[in-house]
Protein backbone atom coordinates (compact mmCIF):
# COMPACT_ATOMS: atom_id res chain seq x y z
CA UNK A 1 0.00 0.00 0.00
CA UNK A 2 2.78 2.36 0.98
CA UNK A 3 4.68 1.47 -2.19
CA UNK A 4 1.73 2.34 -4.35
CA UNK A 5 1.32 5.71 -2.68
CA UNK A 6 5.02 6.34 -3.20
CA UNK A 7 4.67 5.48 -6.90
CA UNK A 8 1.75 7.85 -7.27
CA UNK A 9 3.72 10.59 -5.54
CA UNK A 10 6.58 10.08 -8.01
CA UNK A 11 4.14 10.14 -10.93
CA UNK A 12 2.52 13.34 -9.71
CA UNK A 13 5.87 14.99 -9.09
CA UNK A 14 7.15 14.11 -12.55
CA UNK A 15 3.92 15.33 -14.17
CA UNK A 16 4.23 18.61 -12.26
CA UNK A 17 7.82 19.09 -13.40
CA UNK A 18 6.90 18.34 -17.02
CA UNK A 19 4.01 20.81 -16.94
CA UNK A 20 6.31 23.25 -15.19
CA UNK A 21 8.86 22.97 -17.98
CA UNK A 22 6.17 23.70 -20.58
CA UNK A 23 4.61 26.55 -18.60
CA UNK A 24 7.93 28.24 -17.94
CA UNK A 25 9.48 27.94 -21.36
CA UNK A 26 6.36 28.88 -23.37
CA UNK A 27 5.90 32.43 -21.94
CA UNK A 28 9.64 33.05 -21.99
CA UNK A 29 9.61 31.94 -25.61
CA UNK A 30 7.06 34.61 -26.52
CA UNK A 31 9.38 37.16 -24.97
CA UNK A 32 12.44 35.70 -26.71
CA UNK A 33 10.58 35.76 -30.01
CA UNK A 34 9.82 39.45 -29.73
CA UNK A 35 13.23 40.44 -28.44
CA UNK A 36 15.11 38.49 -31.09
CA UNK A 37 12.78 39.88 -33.75
CA UNK A 38 13.71 43.31 -32.46
CA UNK A 39 17.43 42.63 -32.51
CA UNK A 40 17.30 41.28 -36.05
CA UNK A 41 15.38 44.34 -37.22
CA UNK A 42 17.72 46.80 -35.48
CA UNK A 43 15.33 47.47 -32.58
CA UNK A 44 15.35 46.51 -28.91
CA UNK A 45 12.00 44.77 -28.57
CA UNK A 46 10.03 44.92 -25.31
CA UNK A 47 12.54 45.94 -22.64
CA UNK A 48 10.52 48.01 -20.19
CA UNK A 49 8.61 45.59 -17.96
CA UNK A 50 11.01 44.19 -15.39
CA UNK A 51 14.72 43.66 -15.92
CA UNK A 52 15.42 43.23 -19.67
CA UNK A 53 11.66 43.01 -20.21
CA UNK A 54 11.52 39.69 -18.37
CA UNK A 55 8.05 40.38 -16.96
CA UNK A 56 6.55 41.19 -20.37
CA UNK A 57 4.69 37.83 -20.55
CA UNK A 58 2.97 38.68 -17.26
CA UNK A 59 1.94 42.06 -18.64
CA UNK A 60 0.66 40.35 -21.80
CA UNK A 61 -1.34 37.92 -19.69
CA UNK A 62 -2.92 40.72 -17.66
CA UNK A 63 -3.79 42.55 -20.86
CA UNK A 64 -5.31 39.43 -22.40
CA UNK A 65 -7.44 38.70 -19.36
CA UNK A 66 -8.67 42.27 -19.08
CA UNK A 67 -9.72 42.49 -22.72
CA UNK A 68 -13.20 41.69 -23.93
CA UNK A 69 -13.53 38.37 -25.67
CA UNK A 70 -15.64 38.89 -28.76
CA UNK A 71 -17.44 35.91 -30.28
CA UNK A 72 -18.82 36.59 -33.76
CA UNK A 73 -22.59 36.38 -34.09
CA UNK A 74 -22.60 33.56 -36.61
CA UNK A 75 -19.82 31.55 -34.99
CA UNK A 76 -20.31 28.06 -33.65
CA UNK A 77 -19.92 29.10 -30.05
CA UNK A 78 -18.85 25.79 -28.52
CA UNK A 79 -16.28 24.91 -31.18
CA UNK A 80 -15.10 28.50 -31.36
CA UNK A 81 -14.24 28.49 -27.67
CA UNK A 82 -12.97 24.91 -27.70
CA UNK A 83 -10.65 25.14 -30.72
CA UNK A 84 -7.64 26.83 -29.06
CA UNK A 85 -7.83 24.27 -26.27
CA UNK A 86 -7.75 21.41 -28.79
CA UNK A 87 -4.61 22.89 -30.34
CA UNK A 88 -3.04 22.71 -26.91
CA UNK A 89 -3.56 18.92 -26.80
CA UNK A 90 -0.69 17.62 -29.00
CA UNK A 91 1.96 19.65 -27.24
CA UNK A 92 0.88 18.79 -23.74
CA UNK A 93 0.00 15.12 -24.42
CA UNK A 94 3.05 14.53 -26.54
CA UNK A 95 5.38 15.96 -23.94
CA UNK A 96 4.09 13.38 -21.47
CA UNK A 97 5.84 10.51 -23.26
CA UNK A 98 9.13 12.33 -23.86
CA UNK A 99 11.93 11.16 -21.55
CA UNK A 100 13.42 14.41 -20.30
CA UNK A 101 16.08 13.11 -17.97
CA UNK A 102 18.12 10.21 -16.72
CA UNK A 103 16.65 7.99 -13.99
CA UNK A 104 16.83 8.79 -10.30
CA UNK A 105 17.34 5.35 -8.77
CA UNK A 106 14.58 3.21 -10.31
CA UNK A 107 12.41 6.09 -11.42
CA UNK A 108 12.78 7.22 -15.02
CA UNK A 109 12.29 10.92 -15.59
CA UNK A 110 9.44 10.47 -18.01
CA UNK A 111 5.82 10.98 -17.11
CA UNK A 112 4.37 8.00 -19.01
CA UNK A 113 6.62 5.21 -20.24
CA UNK A 114 4.68 4.02 -23.30
CA UNK A 115 5.89 0.99 -25.25
CA UNK A 116 4.63 2.61 -28.46
CA UNK A 117 5.86 6.14 -27.79
CA UNK A 118 6.62 7.00 -31.41
CA UNK A 119 3.20 5.84 -32.60
CA UNK A 120 1.52 7.77 -29.80
CA UNK A 121 3.42 10.90 -30.82
CA UNK A 122 2.33 10.43 -34.45
CA UNK A 123 -1.30 10.00 -33.39
CA UNK A 124 -1.28 13.00 -31.10
CA UNK A 125 0.50 15.28 -33.60
CA UNK A 126 -2.39 14.95 -36.04
CA UNK A 127 -4.85 16.23 -33.45
CA UNK A 128 -3.30 19.69 -33.67
CA UNK A 129 -4.74 20.31 -37.10
CA UNK A 130 -8.26 19.57 -35.81
CA UNK A 131 -7.99 22.57 -33.55
CA UNK A 132 -6.84 24.83 -36.36
CA UNK A 133 -9.49 23.58 -38.78
CA UNK A 134 -12.28 23.83 -36.21
CA UNK A 135 -11.13 27.29 -35.15
CA UNK A 136 -11.01 28.54 -38.72
CA UNK A 137 -14.32 26.98 -39.69
CA UNK A 138 -16.30 27.87 -36.58
CA UNK A 139 -15.48 31.57 -36.74
CA UNK A 140 -17.63 31.80 -39.93
CA UNK A 141 -15.16 34.01 -41.71
CA UNK A 142 -14.05 33.10 -45.24
CA UNK A 143 -10.46 34.13 -44.61
CA UNK A 144 -10.28 32.06 -41.46
CA UNK A 145 -11.70 29.12 -43.37
CA UNK A 146 -9.11 29.54 -46.14
CA UNK A 147 -6.37 29.64 -43.53
CA UNK A 148 -7.69 26.51 -41.90
CA UNK A 149 -7.88 24.72 -45.25
CA UNK A 150 -4.32 25.64 -46.03
CA UNK A 151 -3.19 24.48 -42.61
CA UNK A 152 -4.82 21.08 -43.04
CA UNK A 153 -3.48 20.58 -46.58
CA UNK A 154 -0.02 21.57 -45.39
CA UNK A 155 -0.08 19.33 -42.35
CA UNK A 156 -1.21 16.31 -44.35
CA UNK A 157 1.57 16.72 -46.90
CA UNK A 158 4.27 17.25 -44.29
CA UNK A 159 3.11 14.63 -41.82
CA UNK A 160 4.00 11.91 -44.35
CA UNK A 161 7.63 12.93 -44.53
CA UNK A 162 7.62 13.39 -40.76
CA UNK A 163 6.37 9.84 -40.29
CA UNK A 164 8.93 8.46 -42.69
CA UNK A 165 11.80 10.15 -40.85
CA UNK A 166 10.46 8.67 -37.64
CA UNK A 167 10.54 5.29 -39.39
CA UNK A 168 14.24 5.92 -40.00
CA UNK A 169 14.77 6.41 -36.29
CA UNK A 170 12.87 3.22 -35.54
CA UNK A 171 15.15 1.36 -37.95
CA UNK A 172 18.26 2.82 -36.37
CA UNK A 173 17.24 2.12 -32.81
CA UNK A 174 15.18 -1.03 -33.30
CA UNK A 175 12.42 0.18 -31.01
CA UNK A 176 9.31 2.33 -30.95
CA UNK A 177 9.73 3.13 -27.27
CA UNK A 178 11.09 6.66 -26.88
CA UNK A 179 12.99 5.64 -23.75
CA UNK A 180 14.70 2.79 -25.62
CA UNK A 181 15.51 5.15 -28.50
CA UNK A 182 17.25 7.53 -26.10
CA UNK A 183 19.06 4.65 -24.36
CA UNK A 184 20.24 3.31 -27.72
CA UNK A 185 21.65 6.74 -28.53
CA UNK A 186 23.28 7.04 -25.11
CA UNK A 187 25.05 3.74 -25.64
CA UNK A 188 25.82 3.82 -29.37
CA UNK A 189 25.94 7.47 -30.38
CA UNK A 190 23.37 9.97 -31.54
CA UNK A 191 21.08 9.19 -34.45
CA UNK A 192 22.15 12.34 -36.36
CA UNK A 193 25.56 10.75 -36.66
CA UNK A 194 24.08 7.46 -37.78
CA UNK A 195 23.48 5.77 -34.45
CA UNK A 196 25.58 2.67 -33.95
CA UNK A 197 26.91 2.50 -37.52
CA UNK A 198 29.28 4.67 -39.55
CA UNK A 199 27.33 4.20 -42.77
CA UNK A 200 24.25 5.67 -41.22
CA UNK A 201 25.84 9.13 -41.03
CA UNK A 202 24.40 10.60 -44.28
CA UNK A 203 20.98 9.09 -43.56
CA UNK A 204 21.07 10.50 -40.06
CA UNK A 205 21.95 14.01 -41.18
CA UNK A 206 19.36 14.02 -43.97
CA UNK A 207 16.74 12.55 -41.65
CA UNK A 208 17.40 15.09 -38.93
CA UNK A 209 17.23 17.99 -41.39
CA UNK A 210 13.97 16.64 -42.82
CA UNK A 211 12.47 16.22 -39.37
CA UNK A 212 13.52 19.75 -38.44
CA UNK A 213 11.94 21.29 -41.53
CA UNK A 214 8.80 19.18 -41.20
CA UNK A 215 8.54 20.29 -37.58
CA UNK A 216 8.66 23.89 -38.76
CA UNK A 217 5.84 23.12 -41.19
CA UNK A 218 3.85 21.23 -38.53
CA UNK A 219 4.02 24.21 -36.21
CA UNK A 220 2.93 26.62 -38.97
CA UNK A 221 6.13 28.59 -38.45
CA UNK A 222 7.72 30.72 -41.08
CA UNK A 223 8.64 30.00 -43.86
CA UNK A 224 5.58 27.69 -43.78
CA UNK A 225 3.05 29.95 -42.05
CA UNK A 226 0.62 30.05 -44.95
CA UNK A 227 -2.20 29.35 -42.54
CA UNK A 228 -1.94 32.75 -40.92
CA UNK A 229 -0.51 34.73 -43.77
CA UNK A 230 -1.47 38.20 -42.59
CA UNK A 231 -1.03 39.78 -46.00
CA UNK A 232 -3.61 37.68 -47.85
CA UNK A 233 -5.78 36.14 -45.16
CA UNK A 234 -5.93 38.94 -42.56
CA UNK A 235 -4.74 36.64 -39.79
CA UNK A 236 -5.75 33.22 -41.05
CA UNK A 237 -7.50 30.86 -38.70
CA UNK A 238 -7.27 33.14 -35.64
CA UNK A 239 -8.59 36.30 -37.29
CA UNK A 240 -11.76 36.39 -35.19
CA UNK A 241 -10.16 35.60 -31.88
CA UNK A 242 -9.57 38.19 -29.22
CA UNK A 243 -8.62 38.49 -25.58
CA UNK A 244 -7.80 35.33 -23.70
CA UNK A 245 -8.78 33.00 -26.58
CA UNK A 246 -6.17 34.62 -28.79
CA UNK A 247 -3.56 34.20 -26.06
CA UNK A 248 -4.53 30.54 -25.91
CA UNK A 249 -3.76 30.19 -29.61
CA UNK A 250 -0.36 31.76 -29.11
CA UNK A 251 0.35 29.71 -26.03
CA UNK A 252 -0.69 26.47 -27.73
CA UNK A 253 1.53 27.31 -30.67
CA UNK A 254 4.53 27.79 -28.43
CA UNK A 255 3.81 24.61 -26.48
CA UNK A 256 3.64 22.75 -29.78
CA UNK A 257 6.99 24.28 -30.70
CA UNK A 258 8.53 23.09 -27.45
CA UNK A 259 7.12 19.63 -28.04
CA UNK A 260 8.48 19.39 -31.57
CA UNK A 261 11.88 20.63 -30.39
CA UNK A 262 11.93 17.98 -27.69
CA UNK A 263 10.87 15.38 -30.25
CA UNK A 264 13.79 16.28 -32.51
CA UNK A 265 16.08 16.14 -29.49
CA UNK A 266 14.76 12.74 -28.44
CA UNK A 267 14.78 11.15 -31.86
CA UNK A 268 18.02 12.49 -33.30
CA UNK A 269 20.05 14.50 -30.80
CA UNK A 270 20.43 11.92 -28.06
CA UNK A 271 17.72 13.08 -25.69
CA UNK A 272 19.27 13.92 -22.31
CA UNK A 273 22.66 12.50 -23.25
CA UNK A 274 25.79 14.59 -22.77
CA UNK A 275 28.55 13.41 -25.13
CA UNK A 276 31.58 11.84 -23.40
CA UNK A 277 29.90 12.11 -19.98
CA UNK A 278 28.54 8.77 -18.86
CA UNK A 279 25.45 9.85 -16.98
CA UNK A 280 23.75 6.50 -17.47
CA UNK A 281 26.15 4.82 -15.06
CA UNK A 282 25.18 7.07 -12.17
CA UNK A 283 21.41 7.39 -11.69
CA UNK A 284 21.86 9.87 -8.86
CA UNK A 285 20.02 13.12 -8.22
CA UNK A 286 23.00 15.17 -9.43
CA UNK A 287 23.27 13.10 -12.61
CA UNK A 288 19.54 13.51 -13.20
CA UNK A 289 19.76 17.27 -12.81
CA UNK A 290 22.67 17.37 -15.26
CA UNK A 291 20.74 15.26 -17.76
CA UNK A 292 17.65 17.49 -17.51
CA UNK A 293 19.87 20.54 -18.00
CA UNK A 294 21.39 18.94 -21.09
CA UNK A 295 17.93 18.15 -22.47
CA UNK A 296 16.72 21.70 -21.85
CA UNK A 297 19.84 23.17 -23.45
CA UNK A 298 19.23 21.17 -26.61
CA UNK A 299 15.55 22.15 -26.73
CA UNK A 300 16.29 25.82 -26.21
CA UNK A 301 18.99 25.81 -28.90
CA UNK A 302 16.50 24.33 -31.38
CA UNK A 303 13.83 26.82 -30.36
CA UNK A 304 16.24 29.72 -30.86
CA UNK A 305 16.99 28.52 -34.38
CA UNK A 306 13.21 28.35 -35.00
CA UNK A 307 12.95 32.01 -34.05
CA UNK A 308 16.07 32.93 -35.98
CA UNK A 309 14.70 31.29 -39.13
CA UNK A 310 11.32 32.92 -38.67
CA UNK A 311 12.79 36.42 -38.77
CA UNK A 312 15.13 35.61 -41.65
CA UNK A 313 13.06 33.92 -44.32
CA UNK A 314 10.08 35.13 -46.30
CA UNK A 315 7.02 32.94 -46.73
CA UNK A 316 6.74 30.29 -49.41
CA UNK A 317 4.04 30.50 -52.02
CA UNK A 318 1.38 27.84 -51.76
CA UNK A 319 2.49 25.97 -54.89
CA UNK A 320 6.12 26.09 -53.77
CA UNK A 321 5.10 24.68 -50.42
CA UNK A 322 3.26 21.78 -52.02
CA UNK A 323 6.11 21.23 -54.48
CA UNK A 324 8.60 21.07 -51.66
CA UNK A 325 6.45 18.73 -49.61
CA UNK A 326 5.40 16.24 -52.26
CA UNK A 327 8.20 16.42 -54.82
CA UNK A 328 11.07 17.23 -52.49
CA UNK A 329 10.64 15.85 -49.00
CA UNK A 330 8.58 12.74 -49.63
CA UNK A 331 10.97 11.20 -52.22
CA UNK A 332 13.98 12.24 -50.14
CA UNK A 333 12.55 10.61 -47.04
CA UNK A 334 11.67 7.44 -48.99
CA UNK A 335 15.12 7.19 -50.59
CA UNK A 336 16.69 7.89 -47.22
CA UNK A 337 14.86 4.96 -45.65
CA UNK A 338 15.54 2.70 -48.61
CA UNK A 339 19.27 3.47 -48.50
CA UNK A 340 19.37 2.84 -44.79
CA UNK A 341 17.49 -0.43 -45.11
CA UNK A 342 19.46 -1.78 -48.09
CA UNK A 343 22.85 -0.94 -46.67
CA UNK A 344 21.77 -2.32 -43.35
CA UNK A 345 20.76 -5.64 -44.87
CA UNK A 346 24.00 -5.91 -46.87
CA UNK A 347 26.42 -4.90 -44.13
CA UNK A 348 24.76 -6.31 -41.05
CA UNK A 349 23.08 -9.20 -42.82
Amino acid sequence: MNDMLWDWAWFGGKALVAVGILMTIAPLLTLAERRIAGFIQGRYGPNRVGPFGALQPVADLIKGVMKEQIIPENAERLLFVLAPVIVFVPGAFGFAVIPWGNAIGEHDLQVIDLDVGVLFVMAVLSVGVYGITLGGWSSSNKYSLLGALRASAQLISYELSLGLTMLLVIMMSGSVDLKDIVWHQVQHGWNVFGGSTWWGLPSGIVGCTLLYICALAENNRLPFDLAECEAELVGGYHTEYSGMSFLWWLFAEYVAMIFSASLITTLFLGGWDIPFVHLEEAPTVFGAVLSVASFLTKIITILMTYIWIRWTLPRFKYNQLMDLGWKGFLPTALVNIAVMAVIGVFLEG
Binding site: F39, I40, R43, Y44, T312, L313
Partner: peptide, 25 residues
Protein backbone atom coordinates in the same frame (compact mmCIF):
# COMPACT_ATOMS: atom_id res chain seq x y z
CA UNK B 1 17.75 26.33 -50.63
CA UNK B 2 19.76 25.40 -47.56
CA UNK B 3 23.09 27.16 -48.40
CA UNK B 4 21.21 30.34 -49.24
CA UNK B 5 19.09 30.04 -46.13
CA UNK B 6 22.25 29.78 -44.04
CA UNK B 7 23.66 32.82 -45.82
CA UNK B 8 20.52 34.76 -44.95
CA UNK B 9 20.70 33.61 -41.35
CA UNK B 10 24.26 34.87 -41.11
CA UNK B 11 23.03 38.21 -42.37
CA UNK B 12 20.29 38.49 -39.76
CA UNK B 13 22.73 37.38 -37.07
CA UNK B 14 25.01 40.22 -38.14
CA UNK B 15 22.11 42.64 -37.74
CA UNK B 16 21.19 41.22 -34.37
CA UNK B 17 24.66 41.12 -32.84
CA UNK B 18 27.08 43.46 -34.61
CA UNK B 19 25.13 46.33 -36.10
CA UNK B 20 24.08 49.19 -33.78
CA UNK B 21 20.41 49.56 -32.92
CA UNK B 22 18.43 52.25 -34.67
CA UNK B 23 16.10 52.81 -31.71
CA UNK B 24 16.58 55.73 -29.30
CA UNK B 25 15.61 54.69 -25.78
Amino acid sequence: YIPNVLKGMMKTAEYAVIRPKATLL
